[in-house]
Amino acid sequence: MSAYVVIDLDVADAEGFQQYIDGVTPLIDKVGARNILVDPGTETLEGDWNPPTLVIHEFPSKQAVLDFWNSPEYEPYKDLRRKYSTVKVVVAEAN
């Protein structure tokens, strides 16, 4: 069952954050996930959620997300991500 990672992304340093993207993209590909959406122009229709950039990734399963998120390969990129951006991340599994 597919799982979706939804990210509210606020990049503080685009050049620095590119290092994160360059390193993480092959890791995402390796686990069979794919980038569905990156949109810096979202429009809030109701409520007060207004992500500067909305990102959505599709993974094969919620367990695949958790395995990726907690993997030793991803660990150094978390620090890079935190250095150059602020994120809110949720995962949900399709039924």
Results as ranks from 00 to 15, higher is better:
Asp48Glu: 15
Lys88Leu: 05
Arg81Trp: 04
Asn50Thr: 15
Tyr84Ser: 01
Gln63Leu: 11
Leu54Gln: 07
Leu80Thr: 13
Phe17His: 11
Ile56Tyr: 02
Phe68Leu: 07
Glu15Ile: 15
Pro40Asn: 10
Leu37Val: 09
Asp8Tyr: 05
Pro51Met: 08
Val6Cys: 10
Val91Ser: 15
Ala14Tyr: 12
Pro40Lys: 08
Val87Pro: 00
Thr44Met: 07
Leu66Tyr: 14
Leu37Thr: 10
Asp13Met: 05
Glu58Ala: 04
Lys62Asn: 11
Val87His: 03
Pro26Lys: 11
Val87Gln: 06
Asp29Phe: 04
Phe17Trp: 09
Ser61Gln: 01
Leu9Lys: 02
Ser71Leu: 00
Asp48Asn: 15
Gln18Leu: 10
Asp22Tyr: 02
Gly32Leu: 02
Lys78Glu: 13
Arg34Lys: 13
Asp39Cys: 08
Thr25His: 09
Phe68Asn: 09
Ile7Ser: 00
Tyr74Val: 13
Tyr4Thr: 07
Ser71Val: 00
Pro51Trp: 00
Gln19Asp: 15
Thr53Leu: 02
Ile28His: 01
Asp29His: 07
Ile7Gly: 00
Ala94Val: 11
Lys62Val: 10
Asp8Arg: 02
Ser71Cys: 01
Leu80Gly: 07
Asp10Trp: 01
Thr25Cys: 03
Val65Thr: 09
Ala33Gln: 03
Pro76Trp: 00
Ser85Leu: 00
Pro52Asn: 08
Thr42Ile: 11
Val65Gly: 08
Val38Pro: 12
Trp49Ile: 09
Pro51Asn: 08
Gly16Leu: 01
Val38Gly: 15
Thr53Gln: 09
Asp29Asn: 07
Val90Cys: 12
Pro72Cys: 02
Gly32Met: 02
Glu46Asn: 14
Thr42His: 10
Trp49Cys: 01
Val90Met: 12
Glu93Pro: 12
Ile21Arg: 02
Tyr4Gln: 02
Val5Asp: 06
Pro72Ser: 12
Ile56Thr: 08
Asp22Cys: 04
Val31Phe: 11
Leu66Ser: 11
Ala92Tyr: 11
Asp10Asn: 09
Val24Asp: 00
Val38Asp: 13
Gly23Pro: 03
Arg81His: 06
Gly47Ser: 03
Thr53Lys: 07
Pro52Ser: 05
Val87Ile: 12
Asp13Phe: 01
Ser85Trp: 01
Tyr20Ser: 00
His57Ala: 08
Thr86Leu: 11
Arg81Lys: 04
Asp67Leu: 08
Asn70Glu: 15
Pro76Ile: 03
Lys30Glu: 13
Val65Arg: 07
Ile36Phe: 04
Leu9Glu: 06
Ala14Lys: 12
Glu58Asn: 06
Ser71Trp: 00
Leu45Pro: 05
Thr25Met: 06
Glu73Phe: 04
Trp49Gly: 06
Gly41Tyr: 15
Phe68Met: 06
Gly32Val: 01
Phe68Gly: 07
Asp10His: 07
Arg82Thr: 09
Leu54Gly: 03
Gly41Val: 11
Arg82Tyr: 13
Gln18Cys: 05
Leu66Cys: 10
Phe68Ser: 12
Val65Tyr: 13
Asp79Cys: 11
Phe17Leu: 04
Val6Gln: 10
Gly41Cys: 14
Asp79Trp: 12
Val91Met: 14
Lys30Leu: 08
Ala92Ile: 14
Asn70Leu: 13
Asp48Leu: 14
Asn50Glu: 12
Ser85Gln: 01
Glu75Ile: 08
Tyr20Gln: 00
Leu9Tyr: 05
Gly32Gln: 03
Gln63Val: 12
